[in-house]
């Protein structure tokens, strides 16, 4: 009895290698698309925010050194900048997770198609 054709499985996509490739390609495409569309906006916004926050730190020091604001006021202003920076990092974290989530779901959707094609009906 001849060995079962491995090529046939790969052709239909229902082999470990085939499924891995389908999932990997879908995840890769999703990541590439999202990094192209979502990331530049966040990167630009983040860069501008970091510049503004850095400038604010310099301005706070100048105002404090000249005696225009008290030490307590300087501390309040620095805490405000820290909060803004942390909020920015949380947004970056959230957008990063959304991008990863899209990639995972794209991979799962791709393998759904492979399974349904392999069994010949809509199983999942």
């Amino acid at each position: 009895m001849p060995p079962r054709s491995r090529t046939r499985s790969v052709a239909t996509g229902f082999s470990l290698e085939g499924i891995f490739q389908v999932m990997f390609d879908a995840a890769k495409n999703s990541l590439q698309q999202n990094v192209r569309s979502k990331w530049p906006k966040i990167r630009d916004l983040t860069t501008a925010s970091i510049k503004d926050i850095a400038q604010n730190f310099i301005d706070i020091k100048e105002l404090s050194d000249s005696g225009a604001i008290t030490q307590e006021q300087a501390k309040l202003k620095i805490s405000l900048q820290k909060n803004a920076f942390q909020t920015m990092l949380l947004t970056e974290k959230g957008i990063g997770l959304i991008i990863v989530e899209d990639a995972l779901n794209s991979a799962l959707n791709a393998v759904k198609k492979v399974v349904n094609t392999a069994v010949g009906f809509v199983l999942i």
Binding site: L45, S49, K77, L80, A84, T87, M88, L90, T91
Partner: peptide, 14 residues
């Protein structure tokens, strides 16, 4: 104002 505006912009971006 700049710090709070940054925070809110980032929140809306998310």
């Amino acid at each position: 104002e700049s710090a709070i505006a940054k925070s809110l912009t980032m929140m809306l971006e998310l």
